[in-house]
Amino acid sequence: MTTSPDGEHDSHDIVAPGPQSPRSELAVAALLVAAAVSAIAFIVVYSLEKFSTQHELLGITLAASFAFVAAALLLFGERVLPSEEVAEDYPEAAAPMEQEEVAKVMEESTSGITRKRLLVGAGGTAGGAIGLAALTPALSMGPWIDVAPLYRTPWRPGRRLVDDKGKPYKAEEIEQETFYTAFPEGSSDRNLGASLVVVRVDPAALRLPPERAGWAPEGILAFSKICPHAACTVAIYQKPTYGPTQPGPALVCPCHYSTFDPAKGGEVLFGPAGRPLPQLPLTVDAGREIRAGGNFSDAIGPSWWGIEMEEPH
């Protein structure tokens, strides 16, 4: 093989002669046959569909066929085909002549225009307006402007709390040291404002804000189950794990571990939540059934720009 100093090969001999290895050629052929056998094995396993490890066998046979081809190619490249190091100049960094030409074409074609700024302005206006027009149909996707749905909850004074089967909760059923999930009677539970966590604490331990006096009859408290941090569901009711800041069992969201104190009306004890867990006022009626005494203390769900602006309704 001849290589000139700049890496260009002699025209009669572009590629250096290969290593000449009939045994390697045989091995490559054997590997390819093995690949074919594996592929056929895959077809057979798929068609018979009767192995207890059907899924695993499918994976193994298919993977094996690809692996054999990989091995064959590797051997083919290393032992059968010639393999040589070559060198070449990097491409020119830039083409100054063409750059100049492009610039000239642009300059010369537009040099006769007298009202350049007017045209650029008009063009920009047309482009912007057409862009807006093209985006307008996207408004059909959702409310975009009307944010009122974000304040809506299905809770009304007197509405009964029911379990996931629709059975109303009675005050006696609510025990301490555990939590219950409740829904508004006769409402879709797909609504973010529907689900509640209900807990009972010792009435003596209650430290509710004064304006919420009477919201927790007999120490039974209800909160939105949706974490005000990032809309996960508050699904842990745990014993204090962090003595200094956590006085009693706390409601915890398992996504980012925002931790709320039910006895203090859902105050944040720990974690990233920027607002307390919204509390729902409760009453216990003559039949001992638990009913909503009104709507939540605050809008439910994660924070957004208007979350503090209106009461939930």
Partner: peptide, 22 residues
């Protein structure tokens, strides 16, 4: 200014395809 290595063919293509199959 000077790049040194394996040409796409015959050297690199089989290797690269082998990597793909692997």
């Amino acid at each position: 200014r000077k790049l040194v290595g394996m040409p796409a063919f015959p050297a690199q293509v089989p290797r690269s395809l082998a990597l793909m199959f692997a």
